[in-house]
Design a protein around this nucleic acid. Sequence first.
DNA 1: TTCTTTTTTGCATCCGATTTCATGATATAC
DNA 2: GTATATCATGAAATCGGATGCAAAAAAGAA
Lengths: 350, 350
Amino acid sequence: MDSKKPGKSITIYDIASEAGVSPATVSRVMTKSAGVSESKRRAVEHLIQKYEFRPNALAKSLSNTHTHILGLLVADIRNPYFAALAVECEKAANRRGYTVMLCNVLNDNALEDSNLEKLYEQRVDAIIQAGCRVDDLVTDTQYAAHVNRVSRTIPFITTGKLDGTDCYCLNIDDTKGMKIIIDYLVSLGHRRIAMIGGENRKESTYEKWRQYIYLMGKNDLVFRDDYLQEGSYSEKSGYRCMNRLLDLDIVPTAVIAVNDFTAVGALKAAAERGVRIPQDISVISFDNTFLSEISAPKLTTIDYNYKLFGEKLVDTAIGAVEHRDIPKKQLITPSLVVRDSCADVNQKKE
Amino acid sequence: MDSKKPGKSITIYDIASEAGVSPATVSRVMTKSAGVSESKRRAVEHLIQKYEFRPNALAKSLSNTHTHILGLLVADIRNPYFAALAVECEKAANRRGYTVMLCNVLNDNALEDSNLEKLYEQRVDAIIQAGCRVDDLVTDTQYAAHVNRVSRTIPFITTGKLDGTDCYCLNIDDTKGMKIIIDYLVSLGHRRIAMIGGENRKESTYEKWRQYIYLMGKNDLVFRDDYLQEGSYSEKSGYRCMNRLLDLDIVPTAVIAVNDFTAVGALKAAAERGVRIPQDISVISFDNTFLSEISAPKLTTIDYNYKLFGEKLVDTAIGAVEHRDIPKKQLITPSLVVRDSCADVNQKKE
DNA sequence: TTCTTTTTTGCATCCGATTTCATGATATAC
DNA sequence: GTATATCATGAAATCGGATGCAAAAAAGAA
């Protein structure tokens, strides 16, 4: 039957008995705590090497009530934005001796709830939530209550706002991001600027729109309702929105895409209709995922500084775990990455 | 100080004492095991509801020696291929009551080793490894030894081959994949077929090349050394390889890219030089990630059936955990997804 | 040498579940 | 009404480490 799969792993008790010491001493060696004589320490260490002993993390966590695991809930890891963020979180966590436990929400509320419970049952030290329902403009109160229950025992960090809960919020400063974009386009001489993609129920998109409209007015630029094309976050959506813009009587000279996917769709629509980017129309987007590097032309885009973002997320989580005094709200300032998709309106070259 | 962060979660003991029963009874209710009177069961269930009691998974796992967690080591989750696979693994695992613990190797051997140890310390029930060193043609013997030690106690499933270890291997049938491609191109009348991208030290790439060369001969097609352009797996590499092909005296009529990234690079090179895809040259690739959907034109590509792949990976893992009789080697048959990047050579339309 | 002080060491308990086993309570059979 | 089988229940051990505490050993002081 299970001829060779007994595979019981060895324990500090095994080491202890072979070394002729107590399990407590082995434990002290493992945790490098003081008060072990040099001779016994060496004896124990030798056996640890010999058997390649690796302590059972479950037992460890059970006894000292922390797991050194951070739960990370993301909307969908297949989206390069979340993948980039998740990797940076994992790196940052690793550097600090923590592990990340990743769960995908996949736009499924039931799955989001069950993942939340799973992380809770695993007694992760903190939960970081990026995307998902937390980004919705109007907080689902039942969900908020759910989060509140969990966050009573486990620190909760979110990239949304999640009103009515006791969470740490860490956001990208979308207001500033949009301002950087508009300033840049204005500096290139653009006056007819459109914006495509996104859903108004999403906090960050809503903020971008609001800021877009505000800055249109403030800079005395052309604002038309049909220059703000609502959609979603997909390439298809960008394609559709861009086509609608290209059908207008007066076509904009610059298009802001809500994210890289949308921008890629816009590029495709333009290419199909023989509209040259950036000579005829400039395109600029948010996210700076690898898509902006591989698209043709490469996209000028707002970078979220994933490394810093991930690091702050993790630091906030760990800080909360260690009861340090962490601000409840923090903002990350984005920056502009200039590539090839924007041009000066006055230098349209043939 | 920690004014409101005591947050001790409740236990079966708390429930037991309030219900006036023993912890054992509470446990029986939790695990839905038989032998609890209806009255006590209801009393306990009521308290579980009331306090929203969630059992400590650590304690549970410690006592019954399985965690219901599957470790998943991937090369880099930012690569859409791994993201697609990871999500399918997670879904499949969830369906079977398991959780996935994901770790990125990020092309860093030390990180790969430490992740392996971390998963071992967590006592995950099984480890699935996709990409990483396992895909190397020549197995690093030291690494194999390392894996062997872990796989003594934890079933190990890999998408590579990993000679000299006791692992379950689950591969894509690249031989068949290449045959499907060549057959398809031949059916479209192509005779000058090139192949770009990949590294010959990677098992799956090596197999593709070998099969490509073999089928060139078998089908009596044009084979030239410079039609096989070695590179890597990036968009940049595809771009460079494609340019090299376009510089040749006799340009191929079809190009096989080792993956979607490479194909996207090839499309970009072609576009820049005014070469139309697919009218002038057909491009076909492996992977079928979302890139093949958003590229222009959309890519005809080999699909790996991520759902089935993830499912088999997870089933193999769980099967091994449960000591069921699982084949040590399995193959997944890929299929062709026809989109817009290949054309019949005889119908070059102006 | 004897009395302190300091350092080592192990015993025992805890963390929070599961599970075996013995016991007491019920139900069924004769 | 007694004997037997069935069922419900809790006490206690277990999983594998961490750690407070007291005892033992070693080191220092007088």
